[in-house]
Design a protein around this nucleic acid. Sequence first.
DNA 1: CGGCAT
DNA 2: CGTAT
DNA 3: GCCG
Length: 336
Amino acid sequence: MRESRPVAVETRHLIQDTLPAISEGGAPAAEVSQYACQRRTTTDNYNVVFTDAFEVLAECYEFNQMDGRCLAFRRAASVLKSLPRGLSSLEETHSLPCLGGHAKAIIGEILQHGRAFDVEKVLSDERYQTLKIFTSVFGVGPKTAEKWYRSGLRSLDHILADQSIQLNHMQQNGFLHYGDISRAVSKAEARALTKVIGETVQAITPDALLALTGGFRRGKEFGHDVDIIFTTLELGMEENLLLAVIKSLEKQGILLYCDYQASTFDLTKVPAHSFEAMDHFAKCFLILRLEASQVEEGLNSPVEDIRGWRAVRVDLVSPPVDRYAFALLGWTGSRV
DNA sequence: CGGCAT
DNA sequence: CGTAT
DNA sequence: GCCG
């Protein structure tokens, strides 16, 4: 995980026959592989109290453009998420990677008092609270949020009321569909959208491969978007397929927003380090209109919402067929 | 002290 | 700069 | 902030 790229295979990379060592106290020390593929599941988190705290600190450092420290706390959170049970003492952190003095101090405080001073301070900070709200808008990152904060703006209503602010297309859609796309997407909604995209793809080319990826493929019940990967068996036609799918969605009247990114994939330019190529397939970031009638368990919407539809963020990726399995692996993700 | 994913 | 994993 |  530290490397975040392929590394030379060493003895320590081989999967060990790990019977956890029984410590003096009796309970086996929480000892976990640094490799996500050796983890039992990728969805359970027995250390939410600690990982939530680390994620607050990571976000705070992100807002302050301290990328290194931000990354350090994101890694610390990932490590705790990979544990098979909740931490119950500081000693259990001794063998864990990516946890240093600061992270351990936070864990110690939370173990003792249920909260940590540094985290409480960040949570009560006006700048943090405001940047958190601004960056919750699709299309608004830390730089834009900071710019708005510096000019004295403190709420989304202030942003919308300010005549001098020029929202780009992505941000306009972020505000337009704010309620819908900040609400969780259910597994039933993801299945419904997979069916819509599947039928659309099928109508264009019968010899297609398609899969739901991202968090839902990892077994999550809820997500913040839907990731779908598909391709055609006809090598070289995958970009045309994606463009045809987008046109069809538009014709069906369900395409609310589309940011298309053409493939930059070129085998001759990235031969050896092909993991970098994952990013280079044709893809698009969409906002789609999902009809309530298409979702078996109904929409994940408040009861007072009588529209009969909701907007959902959907990402489509279309790799060449000989890269399909590889892209599926990449887009099934996990930060670890 | 430099690097930190693409 | 934003998005995604 | 953590690590090599």
